[in-house]
Design a protein around this nucleic acid. Structure first.
Lengths: 141, 141
DNA sequence: CAAAAAGAAGATATGTCTGTCTTTTATTGT
DNA sequence: ACAATAAAAGACAGACATATCTTCTTTTTG
């Protein structure tokens, strides 16, 4: 479903959402250790997300990654699209280039339902709201 | 979502369901040409499906691949699991090894809904029924 | 100014996915 | 029995994803 990069990215963003703030920034090493993700691999993913303004970063001592208020208003779909692209939400499930309601593949209408579900699940709550839920119901990242 | 192998495999099985019978078998070359799939790549996929008795085959002149009555009663989930495995229906969407209702990841219950949808969509109709629908509503494979 | 940490780029290694080719085996029709 | 046909099987190669490690630059803090 999602690439490893994407899974790592989502977990890291949620970790930042729960444990970081503009005052308390987290270094790659710390995040990688806590989530058991290869450090240098995670660094690349976080840099990519920072470049797309989905997470924030600052250099220097006491620098690190964190989420600002605006970051907390993004949703999982933004993260997923930034890392894996939007194919999963848009492309034909059978890989046909020509596939539409006018010229549907055998799974077109079924896939439509699935994609609707994905969109709903990943778009209808913000990262901030998810962080709240993680703390409230003690979910493991 | 699905690997190329799986997409090719599904299309090939549906093609066989529509155009083949125990009397009219189709060679790899013919299927590969019609569906615009690399021939030798498709051969491997079909061999794998034949070994798992999801499609039928016979060698020699006028041999080829086809679906028998039993094959037509299998469903897409069988095909998908034979090629890509059952991960998409079972594994944690965030890649966590420990993820259950007791110790859920932040997406566990959302993913449950998505997986239910996948199961429903791919399990509730047989290959034979799909073939009928393809013919009836003129869907492109 | 020195230390800390991200940013950026590249080398390397491994593994999986995708794709091609060749050889072997089984079946059929003559 | 023989030749043709087609699947079965395995060897191989390139692309891409995943992962690790270096090196260097830039920015910021104390």
């Amino acid at each position: 479903m999602f690439s490893k990069s994407c899974q790592y990215g989502i977990r890291a963003v949620l970790f930042l959402a729960v444990y970081s703030s503009a005052e308390k920034r987290l270094g790659v090493t710390e995040i990688a250790n806590k989530l058991e993700i290869p450090k240098h691999f995670l660094a690349k993913i976080l840099q990519q997300l920072a470049k797309e303004n989905l997470i924030s970063s600052s250099r220097g001592p006491s620098g690190g990654f964190y989420l600002n208020k605006k970051n907390r208003k993004s949703n999982l779909k933004d993260i997923i699209e930034a890392i894996d692209g939007s194919q999963i939400f848009t492309d034909c499930i059978l890989g046909l280039k020509e596939c539409s309601s006018e010229k549907p593949c055998p799974l077109h209408f079924q896939a439509f339902g699935i994609k609707e579900g994905l969109n709903y699940q990943f778009e209808h709550q913000t990262i901030g709201e998810m962080a709240e839920k993680i703390v409230r119901t003690n979910l493991s990242i």
